[in-house]
Every structure is written in C-alpha cells, then in structure tokens.
C-alpha cells in the first residue's frame, strides 16, 4: 500500500477546499448576505467551469474525443440518462480508436 507524501498533501488540500465550500459556504452566508452581483456571477460558475474543462480537451484530443462528445451529447438530450450518455460516448470514442 503506497502513500506518497505529496499525494497525501494534495488529498488533504482537496479535502479542506471541499469542506470550505460545503460547510464554510453555509457558515459564511449565515453571517453575510451575498450581493446580487456575486449571486449572478456564482450562478454562471457550474456551466462555464465544465466548458473550460471540456473545450481544451476536445481541441487537443482530435477526432476520438470529438466524436465521443457528440455521441454523449446526442444521447443525453435524447434520453436524459447520465449513465446511457456516458456509455454511448465512451463506446463511440472506442469505435474511433479501433478504426485508427
């Protein structure tokens, strides 16, 4: 069982950052009311964050992730099922990989 000290430090940092959001956010907003501008900005964070993760990966990855992402998106819109969309997208990416 390997436990690298840097990895452990990163995990502790991630755990503290997560609880700062889960618990700290509740605590903070019990003390102060967020301004309407801050609320408006924070409402956009989930979508823009995942776009920022996905787009560079698609630009760098080429055909395989682009085909996979298209299959994921189409399946998600058609079925609204996270599991089916992940399966269909991964299968499509696998298909491209098999061809290339």
């Amino acid at each position: 069982m390997r436990l690298d000290p840097w990895t452990l430090a990163a995990i502790i940092g991630m755990a503290l950052a997560t609880y700062a959001c889960r618990g700290g956010g509740y605590w903070l907003f019990r003390q102060i009311k967020p301004t309407p501008l801050l609320r408006a900005v924070m409402a956009h964070i989930p979508g823009t964050l995942f776009v920022s993760f996905v787009v560079p990966a698609l630009v760098a990855g080429g055909t395989q992730p682009v085909v996979g992402a298209a299959a994921t998106l189409v399946t998600m819109v058609a079925t609204r099922s996270l599991s089916l969309a992940i399966l269909a997208g991964t299968a499509a990416a696998w298909g491209v990989w098999g061809l290339g």
């Binding site: 395989q64 996270l82 997208g89």
Partner: peptide, 16 residues
C-alpha cells in the same frame, strides 16, 4: 485508452 474518455463524457453530459 478510450475508457478514459468516460471522465470527459461525464462532464459533457452534465453540461447538457
């Protein structure tokens, strides 16, 4: 390996 694409697929489907 394309199985790692599943991580990206999670985010693409959540974006929808």
């Amino acid at each position: 390996h394309p199985l790692f694409f599943a991580a990206l697929a999670v985010f693409v489907s959540m974006l929808a």
